[in-house]
């Protein structure tokens, strides 16, 4: 079958262009600087469930990586003294392919100096109102969300409660989630992805905040409740649109989180990743107080156009590239 034609129609490609312009104008009107960082990095992102795509520059033995996010490079710019910045760039993730995923996608990454997660949620809400004409968003904690939709406390989930909850909600969990001693965060992510996500944000965007501390990624732990992190996600029309943090600044905490993630990857036979020492050196120099968010641009366009297949909003998705 010939695949030379784009997945998106000419009309959608026009809308893509208009949306990009609108977002750029929004940022420039607020004096947030656009930056441009590399797509190829010597080090991968250290994330338990993200695999970076390897590339070989020259015939060297060790691979470089296509960035799965511009986070480390952008934070290095902040450490160097740049003001609030954003970027619209391509990000790459191995094996992520589906109606809402393509291994190469367009990401909006934004860091705002001097604000916390609550303020960034407000700022992101304004951005969504501006570019998608959404109604003012709702805000709910991770715990309240699970209680509301599944009547379970995510900080107190037992194996039998999980299985009962799956049965009542008509879900068949994968085998690894049914064995004893499986990790609660995997079970919670399963319930989030298969059940809750589909049900929320149909009228207006929903910001879910205070993710459990063991899902903090690079967010700070809340100083008032050490069970929760200052990480949030935003959902709209059943789709996850963005993921934000009150950014972790401490060098030592970064190091121990990276080491623990690398250990988890090793324990589950995943590719062994090295810590990015350029990023660590920058952190040693000092990351200013800030909050940051990554937003999936293709998904914004999917919502804007009402199209439910990412292949139909990109020019050439991996099926056609």
């Amino acid at each position: 079958m010939s695949n030379w034609e784009p997945g998106a129609s000419i009309k959608v490609l026009h809308e893509r262009s208009t949306l990009l312009q609108k977002i750029r104008k929004y940022f420039s009107d607020q004096d947030i600087l656009e930056v441009d960082t590399p797509s190829i990095s010597k080090f991968p992102t250290i994330d338990e469930h993200i695999d970076s795509i390897e590339v070989y520059l020259k015939s060297q033995k060790t691979p470089s990586y296509l960035i799965s996010s511009p986070e480390y490079h952008m934070k290095r710019l902040l450490c160097f003294g740049m003001p609030s910045i954003y970027q619209i760039c391509k990000a790459f993730r191995k094996d992520e392919l589906g109606n809402y995923h393509n291994p190469e996608f367009t990401m909006i990454e934004w860091y705002q100096l001097g604000i916390d997660d609550y303020q960034l949620m407000q700022a992101t809400d304004k951005l969504l109102q501006h570019v998608l004409n959404t109604a003012p968003a709702e805000f709910i904690t991770y715990k309240a969300l699970f209680l509301k939709y599944l009547n379970i406390d995510p900080f107190n989930l037992t194996q039998s409660k999980f299985l009962l909850c799956c049965q009542e909600s008509g879900l068949t969990p994968s085998k690894d989630l049914m064995i004893k001693n499986c990790r609660i965060e995997d079970q919670l992510n399963f319930l989030m992805g298969f059940y809750i996500e589909k049900k929320i944000g149909h009228q207006k965007p929903v910001f879910v905040y205070h993710y459990p501390a063991n899902q903090s990624a690079l967010a700070k732990i809340d100083p008032m409740h050490n069970q929760v992190s200052q990480r949030f996600e935003v959902f709209y029309k059943g789709l996850e649109l963005g993921n934000g943090y009150h950014e972790l600044q401490d060098y030592q905490v970064h190091l121990s989180r990276f080491e623990s993630t690398i250990k988890k990857r090793k324990d589950s036979d995943q590719t062994d990743y090295q810590i990015d020492y350029n990023f660590m050196d920058a952190l040693k120099h000092g990351l200013p107080h800030c909050s940051g968010i990554a937003i999936g641009f293709d998904r914004l366009l999917m919502i804007k156009t009402g199209i439910e297949d990412i292949d139909k909003v990109q020019s050439f998705s991996s099926k056609r590239s």
Binding site: D47, E48, H49, I50, D95, E96, L97, G98, N99, Y100, H101, T172, S174, E185, D186, L188, N189, F190, M192, G193, F194, E197, Q215, A217, E233, E240, N243
Partner: peptide
């Protein structure tokens, strides 16, 4: 269907049809 919640692990949800009996499972 490929499903990847946030920073969580990825899953594939499949509907499968029994090749002899024709019943569909999830």
């Amino acid at each position: 269907q490929f499903v990847k919640p946030g920073k969580g692990q990825a899953f594939c949800r499949v509907k499968l049809k029994h090749l002899l009996q024709g019943n569909v499972i999830d």
